[in-house]
């Protein structure tokens, strides 16, 4: 088809109005490629239609444009957002790494703390042992001091409930000096709750209360005012923390030698 008959054919109008068959469309597009006149003619036809469309224009509400722009912004993030998101991923990785490191160090610290606590407990136990040892040593020294003192008369106290048990000693001071009587408390058996030990002097074969014995491992020797007329001594088990007028159960008993 030559260009003049093509321009007269009405095919360009049909093409502009999308009325062409696929074969017609193929022909029109070939002519458009080959003939600038055909392109100019199509431009003129389309321009006329476009102007006509403009006379029928209606301004859409502004929110339509807002919605479109929002949609494209959310659908295709710009370069900066993509950078941000990769920075975000980097941050996320860093956070995970940091968390892992924190967990590792926390566990390390926890182990260290546990070890430290165990050491502390051990040290505490050792301290207690040392304290006990030094207290025992002090008691033993005090006892040795008492034994060496010629003015002190030791009285061997035998266990009345369990005769096989280690005897305890009462150290009676010199009646001439400032009279004191010491009890080797550490060697006395520990009493259950609600049971108390009362210390007695035997005067004229009758018990006379000297006072209550305080069982205390740190205080190995307890000293009382002496009774110069004592023939012997006794320790009894009582229910009353302040003691009773007469011994209930005699635990230890010894006569002055």
């Amino acid at each position: 088809m030559d260009i003049q008959s093509f321009l007269q054919s009405g095919l360009l109008e049909s093409y502009a109005l999308t009325q062409c068959t696929p074969e017609e469309r193929k022909l029109v597009e070939e002519m458009l490629q080959q003939h600038p006149e055909a392109r100019a003619e199509l431009e003129a036809i389309e321009l006329a239609l476009e102007q006509y469309a403009q006379t029928q224009a209606v301004v859409p509400p502004a929110e339509v444009k807002d919605r479109i722009m929002q949609e494209i912004d959310s659908a295709s993030p710009p370069m900066t957002t993509r950078l941000n998101s990769s920075a975000g991923r980097l941050l996320q990785a860093a956070a995970v790494l940091l968390l892992a490191a924190a967990t590792y160090f926390w566990m390390q610290q926890r182990t260290a703390e546990q070890q430290l606590e165990a050491s502390r407990q051990q040290s505490l136990a050792l301290q207690q042992q040392i304290q006990e040892c030094s207290s025992n040593l002090a008691t033993q020294r005090a006892i040795v001091e008492l034994l060496r003192d010629p003015k002190i008369r030791p009285v061997k106290m035998s266990n009345q409930i369990n005769p096989a048990a280690i005897p305890s000693y009462v150290f009676n001071g010199d009646p001439a000096g400032p009279c004191k009587i010491s009890v080797d408390v550490a060697s006395l058996p520990v009493q259950p709750a609600g049971k108390y030990l009362q210390f007695w002097a035997i005067v004229n074969k009758a018990p006379v209360s000297i006072g209550m014995i305080k069982i205390d491992s740190l205080n190995g020797i307890q000293t009382f005012d002496c009774n110069p007329n004592a023939e012997g001594f006794a320790v009894s088990i009582e229910d009353n923390p302040n003691g009773n007028a007469a011994p209930t159960t005699v635990l230890m008993f010894g006569l002055q030698g």
């Binding site: 469309a53 403009q54 209606v58 859409p60 444009k65 479109i68 949609e71």
Partner: peptide, 28 residues
């Protein structure tokens, strides 16, 4: 072009709500 297109779309769909949706879809 939105006004010219909206005018045409409005004639086809006969409803402003639908026409606005069509216009949005068109530009997307």
């Amino acid at each position: 072009y939105s006004s010219a297109l909206y005018g045409v779309v409005l004639r086809i769909v006969q409803s402003p709500e639908l026409a606005q949706q069509v216009l949005q879809d068109t530009f997307l």
